[in-house]
Simulated scan of single mutants.
Amino acid sequence: MRSINNHYSKEVQKIQVNVTKNNDNNGKFYKTFNNMLIYSNDLMNIYEFAIRDSKFELEKELATQNSASNKIRIYLVLGSMVLMFIVSILIMYLTRMAFIYEKRLNSANQQIKENLNFKNRILGMLSHELRSPLKIIGIFIKRIHKKTEDETVKEYLKSISFTNDTLLMQANQILEYTKNQQVQNKLIPVTFNLNNEITSILTAIEPYIETRNNKFVINKDIDPDIVVHSDNTKINQIFMNILGNANKFTENGQITVNTSAKYLDEKTVTLTTEIVDTGAGISRSDLEKIFEPYYQGVLSEDVENLGAGLGLSLCKEIVELYSGKISVDSELNEGTTVTFSINLNINK
Rank of each mutant, 00 (worst) to 15 (best):
I218H: 09
P133L: 13
T95A: 05
Y156N: 13
V153N: 07
N109A: 14
G124C: 06
N345Y: 01
N66C: 00
D42N: 13
F33D: 05
A246E: 12
H7R: 14
L76H: 05
Q13N: 07
N241S: 15
L90K: 01
R143Y: 13
N258Q: 01
V153L: 15
T273P: 07
P293V: 03
Q181C: 01
R104H: 12
G27A: 07
V17D: 10
K316L: 06
I188E: 14
T259W: 02
I91A: 06
K325C: 05
I205E: 07
T272R: 08
D302P: 00
K146P: 00
D329T: 13
L168T: 04
G281I: 05
N245P: 02
L83H: 11
D225E: 15
L43E: 13
K267E: 15
Y47F: 11
I38L: 14
V257R: 00
V276S: 08
I342Y: 05
N115L: 14
A246G: 12
S69F: 00
K119S: 12
S161A: 15
S283I: 03
L194R: 13
G311F: 07
M125P: 01
N41G: 08
Q237Y: 01
V82C: 05
M84A: 11
I326C: 04
T199W: 04
S88K: 06
D231A: 10
G309W: 09
A246F: 11
I144T: 15
N6S: 12
F340Q: 02
L202M: 13
N115Q: 07
F118N: 09
L187H: 03
K31S: 15
V319T: 12
Y101H: 05
K316H: 08
N41H: 02
I342L: 13
Q173W: 11
L123A: 08
I74G: 03
E11M: 10
D42E: 11
K60L: 04
T178C: 13
Y75E: 10
L306S: 10
N66P: 01
L130E: 09
E11L: 12
F33K: 01
N66L: 02
T148N: 12
E59T: 03
I282H: 04
I136C: 04
T199V: 13
M1N: 02
E151P: 14
Y8D: 06
